[in-house]
Amino acid sequence: MRETRRTRRSRRAAAALTAAFLLMTGALTGCDSSSDPNAHGSPAKRRPTPTPVWDRSPDSIAAVGDSITRGFDACVVLSDCPEVSWATGTDTKVRSLAMRLIGEPAIAERSWNYARSGADVADLPEQMAQAAAKKPELVTVMVGANDACADSAERMTTVENFRRSFEGALKQLRRTAPKTQVYVSSVPDLKRLWSAGRGNPLGRQIWKLGICASMLGDADDVSTRAQTRRARVQDRVVAYNEVLKAVCGKDPRCRYDGGAVFDFRFSGEQLSRWDWFHPSRDGQERLAEIAYRNVTSAKPPA
């Protein structure tokens, strides 16, 4: 009988120890499970870090657009001067977007300028095809001034045609270079250019040769009719910029400048001393600063 009681006591003690061990094991397992969601299953898997859609430091650049991007009238009268182009120029004073992003030694090998003086938005698809063939990491676009600068306000490019051509240009790029980024500059404020240059006698004489007649024609005329004409041109430029913003906004790899170029107040120093309309070297430098700030910004302009 004593042996039986001793045996029972031993069994109860062993059972108690076993229960305590199991409780401790369960508690430890519970702690591990709460801190490691994969404790009961497959090994932990790291989620890949998503690659940002917008690369703030592209390593190759192509430029498309019109005379502004060609540096027209910035160095010599009635001539292109691509070395001072805000987009791809090599002038160390201007410090173009390409120079700021790529650096001077490599700029000749990794930047291309397909803009053309006199070009309007209808020329953009062809220029974009040339740019796409280089597979650049970034394409800059500045176009629209010539669409508004017609012989008369009635001959300006319609908003519908402007949209169609710009959409076609982006589609042309995407066929060949689907991952290329696009930076779109707004059309400059032509009415502000008229206001800044009309006080210069030489500028007024050159404007009579037909430079942007829809806005600059009869520069001294401030009659109601002339003011109405200029307002019409101004409204068309605003509409073009709305198109650029809307179409660009549908492409995750496109960034519009938020109207920064349109809002920039070009002064006499920033305008060509030959035509008081195109940007001077100083004006090209200002455009390069705006572009660099927007391209490298963590967030697109508002």
Rank of each mutant, 00 (worst) to 15 (best):
R2E: 10
R11V: 14
A14L: 13
A15K: 10
A16D: 09
S34T: 12
D36V: 09
H40Q: 09
T49P: 00
V53T: 15
W54Y: 04
W54I: 04
R56Y: 06
S57E: 13
P58M: 07
G65W: 00
G65C: 02
D66R: 00
S67P: 08
T69Y: 05
R70E: 14
G71M: 10
A74I: 00
W86M: 06
D91C: 06
S96Y: 09
I102A: 02
G103T: 07
I107D: 00
E109M: 14
E109G: 15
R110P: 08
W112Y: 15
N113V: 14
Y114R: 03
Y114Q: 06
S117M: 13
D123P: 02
D123W: 03
E126M: 13
M128L: 13
K135P: 05
E137Y: 04
M142D: 08
V143Y: 03
G144Q: 06
N146L: 06
S152H: 06
S152D: 15
S152Q: 08
A153P: 01
T158V: 07
V159H: 01
N161Q: 15
S165Y: 15
K171P: 00
K179L: 05
T180S: 08
R192M: 11
W194Y: 04
G199R: 07
R204F: 12
G210C: 05
A213T: 10
S223R: 06
T228E: 14
A231M: 14
Q234V: 01
V238G: 02
A239P: 00
Y240H: 05
N241M: 08
C248R: 01
C248M: 05
R253M: 07
Y256F: 15
G259D: 04
L271Q: 03
W276D: 00
H278I: 05
P279Q: 08
Y292D: 01
Y292N: 04
R293Y: 02
P300V: 08
